[in-house]
């Protein structure tokens, strides 16, 4: 392997990892606050791609505007899911919420299959992503570096929101102790809605960037990235925002490196990621950055 192609693989890994990171945040935020895995999250990722597809391809909006509306719609969908499906179960056993999440996921996927059909659609990519640049003798497509640049910027914005704003402070407080957070005068229903909006918007951005990278979209496209991002969240320490990002990059880079160094094993790349998931769940369920399993009062 030449240095140039090694560098390209690293770029690929970072790029894929940043997408997993975007998606993993949503799993980790919801788990941190409500204590269950939001299985519908991967489907919101898919919706991000489709909403943007329709805005750009059908309503013929400029690319950037279509994406902004698409992502905003994802946030609205996320909040609606919370409001309609999860909030009534706030005091029910976790397993009820978990099963409901699976149900919501099936609902969205099947609604997608019925309405837009299973046939993949070509995602309209902007010129920026399609252009080919020559860098150190290597031909690099715009998407290779625009995807990580955009997603890392979004991740930085998220870190700012979580660690430097009043709302973020309330989110971190709710995830530790919901009742005491209420005693601070925080309307926790609002914080939870905001959390879903934030996580879903990130998933939507992830979906759009994913579609720029792999421009064939279908209603089930969120499933595997969703599972891998969930793995990333577990690896990083579920409930921990920075952990989800670290986990995302680890999973992305590992996956790409396996394929790069052992091309014979490339058929097993998915299996490999899920092996990591199983190993972590068995050996270190608290993940790399997680505290030893959080106890909820």
């Amino acid at each position: 392997m030449t240095w140039v192609s090694f560098f390209q693989q690293i770029m690929n890994g970072v790029s894929l990892g940043s997408l997993y990171a975007l998606l993993a945040i949503g799993y980790t935020l919801v788990y941190g606050i409500l204590g269950f895995i939001n299985f519908a999250h991967g489907d919101v990722f898919m919706l991000g791609a489709y909403f943007s597809f329709f805005m750009i391809g059908v309503f013929l909006l400029p690319w950037w505007l279509g994406v902004i509306i698409g992502v905003a719609l994802c946030a609205i969908v996320g909040m609606s899911i919370e409001r309609i499906a999860y909030r009534p179960l706030r005091d029910a056993p976790r397993i009820s919420a978990l099963i409901t999440a699976v149900g919501v996921s099936f609902f969205i996927e099947n609604l997608g299959l019925v309405t837009v059909g299973a046939r993949p659609k070509g995602f309209p990519r902007p010129e920026l992503m399609k252009n080919v640049y020559i860098l150190a003798g290597a031909r690099i497509q715009g998407v290779t570096f625009w995807v990580p640049i955009i997603s890392v910027s979004v991740l930085l914005v998220l870190l700012y929101l979580v660690y430097r704003t009043k709302m973020g402070m309330a989110m971190r407080a709710v995830s530790k102790d919901m009742e005491t957070t209420r005693l601070m005068g925080v309307d926790i229903d609002r914080i939870i809605l905001y959390t879903f909006a934030l996580g879903s918007a990130l998933a939507g951005i992830g979906g759009v960037l994913w579609a720029c990278k792999y421009p064939q979209i279908n209603p089930l496209m969120g499933t595997f990235p969703g599972w891998k991002a969930f793995t990333a969240a577990v690896v990083g320490g579920i409930g921990n925002v920075v952990g989800a990002m670290v986990g995302g990059f680890i999973i992305g880079l590992t996956e790409i490196m396996i394929v790069a160094f052992f091309p014979g094993l490339s058929g097993y790349r998915d299996a490999f990621v899920f092996t990591i998931l199983i190993i972590f769940l068995l050996v270190k369920p608290s993940g790399i950055l997680g505290e030893t399993l959080k106890e909820k009062v």
């Binding site: 009043k166 402070m169 309330a170 971190r172 407080a173 995830s175 530790k176 102790d177 009742e179 005491t180 957070t181 005693l183 601070m184 005068g185 925080v186």
Partner: peptide, 23 residues
């Protein structure tokens, strides 16, 4: 002031105080 202190262990002292002034 709830029974058992219930301060937020993951927030700094400063943030705990600011959260107190949330409203």
């Amino acid at each position: 002031v709830p029974e058992g202190r219930r301060i937020f262990p993951n927030l700094t002292v400063w943030e705990n105080l600011l959260l107190g002034s949330y409203t």
